[in-house]
Amino acid sequence: MTTEGAGKRARDIMRQGAECIGEHGSLREAARMMRDLDVGALPICGDDDRLKGIITDRDIVVKCCAEGKDLDQTTAGDLAHGLVWVDADTSAEEALNMMEEHRIKRLPVIGNHRIVGMISEADIAKELPDSKLAEFVHRVYASA
């Protein structure tokens, strides 16, 4: 993180107000939400309003459309994956490390047992100097 970024928490760098798709919501509904919100991923919340996973636009294409599944019958919960998250009070540095370790581009932020925001690559880019940003991108996109 930048020198001025030292001491920042996940809540300080996240984008607030992440909207969830319900676990019973169809993939067509998820795709429309992504379009309307201009995002590439949505957290999936259960009936208990707790985080169940995350779904990306790529998941919809690769795991539904390409497999010939029905967008209206397949639910977000069917494709729920990636239950990696951080607490809102986690250090920004630790959040960055988790994204690198798990090779993920979006990280849900939880506060009081509910999703309160998401950290994306764009949020990280605002916090890192160019050299660190290049290192982050290399680690997240490097082949396994």
Rank of each mutant, 00 (worst) to 15 (best):
V109D: 01
V62I: 11
D36P: 05
L42W: 07
I54Y: 02
V116F: 11
P43L: 06
A142D: 13
P108L: 06
I110N: 04
D130V: 03
R103Q: 15
V109A: 00
W85R: 08
A41N: 06
D130F: 05
F136D: 00
T56E: 12
E67W: 03
N112A: 12
A92C: 11
V61I: 08
A125V: 12
E101A: 14
K105S: 07
Q16L: 11
E4C: 03
A125M: 10
G46Q: 05
D38G: 11
P108H: 09
G68T: 07
D12K: 07
R15D: 14
H138Y: 01
S26E: 08
V109E: 01
I13T: 06
R11P: 01
V61G: 12
D57F: 02
P108F: 01
A80T: 01
R15F: 01
M34C: 13
E94T: 13
A18D: 05
G117E: 06
A66E: 02
T56K: 09
R28M: 12
C20S: 08
I124A: 10
I21Y: 05
R139K: 15
C64D: 12
T74C: 08
E94W: 10
G22Q: 10
G7E: 09
L96I: 15
T74R: 09
A31P: 00
L107G: 00
L42F: 15
D47S: 15
A10F: 05
A134H: 06
I55K: 05
A88T: 00
Q73C: 06
G111L: 10
D72F: 12
A125P: 03
L133S: 05
D12L: 12
E100L: 10
I54C: 00
E67R: 14
L37N: 05
D49K: 14
A76I: 05
G77Q: 09
R28L: 12
T2N: 08
K132P: 04
Q16N: 07
V62N: 03
I21F: 07
N97F: 12
R15C: 06
I44K: 05
D89S: 11
R106D: 11
G5D: 08
V116W: 03
A66C: 11
R15P: 00
I44S: 01
P43W: 07
E23L: 08
L128P: 00
M34L: 12
R32L: 15
D70M: 09
H138V: 11
R114S: 09
G46C: 14
R103F: 14
D72E: 08
N97Q: 15
E101M: 01
G53H: 06
E19G: 02
K63M: 07
M14N: 06
D70L: 13
A18F: 06
M1W: 02
I104M: 09
V84E: 12
E93T: 10
D70I: 06
D47F: 13
M99L: 10
S143M: 14
D47Q: 09
G7Y: 15
A92P: 00
L71W: 02
D38L: 10
E127M: 08
R58F: 07
H102Q: 09
P43V: 10
V140K: 10
V86G: 00
M1F: 13
R106M: 04
R106E: 02
R103W: 14
R58C: 08
A134T: 03
